[in-house]
Design a protein around this nucleic acid. Structure first.
Lengths: 212, 212
DNA sequence: ACTTTATGGGACGAAACGTCCCATAAAGTT
DNA sequence: AACTTTATGGGACGTTTCGTCCCATAAAGT
């Protein structure tokens, strides 16, 4: 689906970049505030001042505007591991939390939804996940680890909190996630710990707040 | 936004239920296959045979069709805990995996996306998360646990695998998730020397909000 | 100065939108 | 059974948006 700007000599004419930037910025704004169905050539033209003709010419399939709009943000933040893996992971998740609270997170939700029926978006999402995994693998430095699984264990809970529970990602949750992962990594015996032996060693008045 | 069927006597006239079922089924089909922007009165009329007039009359705001379509599926599967918490959790996640692989999971993605800008959808999602949490809390039976955090730790990784990494949820991942959680729960934080004076490593969130 | 080209503006038919009215058939009522 | 109520179906309508086309123009490259 068109490598950004098909058939147009990129980088030469400044008008091209200008138009592209204006339209994609407006598309992102619309995506965040009103959703995919609001991203239409007519509305983009109204918002940007770019004429409808130009938009149709540059993106013959209006869907491509959305794809390029959500494909653009590249959040590749490098990370230098210190000695303390635990602290590194905490820092990693703090940055992730920041990203999940940032404005463009709504775009991630759009991507998730879109990936369900658009293979290209699915591929994009997969690539993003791989990049993040490599970033984290650099921190872990455990050659034997399954980094994909580790990524699921570490990033998953924050995703859940942000998108499903829709509640704040607290410092406590981050530490809990990291410690939980470190524990399971340091003691790899997964043969039936047979819990329930001493259910009382952690107890603080816990209202489960449930009212049915 | 209209509690399902406003202003219409429910349950009396079978035509009402019939129309509603046909339209919402078609809406779900469209949502899964083509996305929200495809769910339009005209297309619903074409798919169902229900006339366009009827659809406009019953859902004056076409957006309500989508809301009701994604609000309908109630996956409340009861769960009876055995003695073995680990096995219970594994079973719980196996059922969840099945749900995440099922056809209607695309609807969950739609909900996540929609919740970003529709408060009612956000509330619905939040409620779903609470119901799942209570379901799981029933299995854990650890009075001191923060079930919200536990839910994030346990469900989050599967969500990540399904929606972000977009890879298969393996048996190994499920066991890894469960064991990771059980480890962190059964052993007080030993990798956390500087956190100090917090003997109960969970139960911090104190369940704000309770209900609304 | 000259050429190339990305854009702007307007026109066009087709399609979908949202609203309205009225006939009809299916349901409930006596 | 006749009668009443009402949810639906089938249009018509003006409006808006869609996607496509052509041509003039201004900005960029030569």
């Amino acid at each position: 689906m068109s490598d950004s700007t098909d058939g147009i000599r990129e980088g030469t004419d400044p008008r091209i970049a200008s138009t592209r930037r204006q339209v994609l910025d407006a598309a992102r704004k619309l995506l965040l505030e009103e959703g995919q169905e609001a991203v239409t050539p007519t509305r983009l033209a109204e918002l940007t001042g770019v004429s409808r003709s130009t938009i149709y010419r540059r993106w013959p399939d209006p869907d491509d505007v959305i794809f390029e709009a959500i494909a653009d943000d590249t959040d590749a933040s490098p990370f230098t591991p210190s000695g303390d893996t635990r602290q590194d992971l905490i820092r990693y998740l703090e940055v992730l939390r920041q990203g999940l609270q940032a404005f463009h997170t709504g775009l991630l939700a759009t991507r998730i939804d879109r990936a369900e029926r658009d293979p290209e978006t699915a591929q994009m999402l997969h690539t993003v996940a791989e990049n993040r995994r490599d970033l984290m693998a650099n921190l872990l430095q455990h050659p034997g680890d399954d980094f994909d699984a580790a990524q699921a264990l570490i990033v998953g809970p924050l995703m859940y909190q942000r998108f499903l529970a829709r509640e704040e990602i607290t410092d406590e949750l981050i530490e809990l996630v990291v410690d939980s992962y470190m524990h399971s990594r340091d003691s790899p015996d997964r043969t039936n710990p047979q819990a329930g032996a001493s259910p009382d060693h952690v107890t603080v008045a816990a209202d489960k707040g449930a009212n049915e």
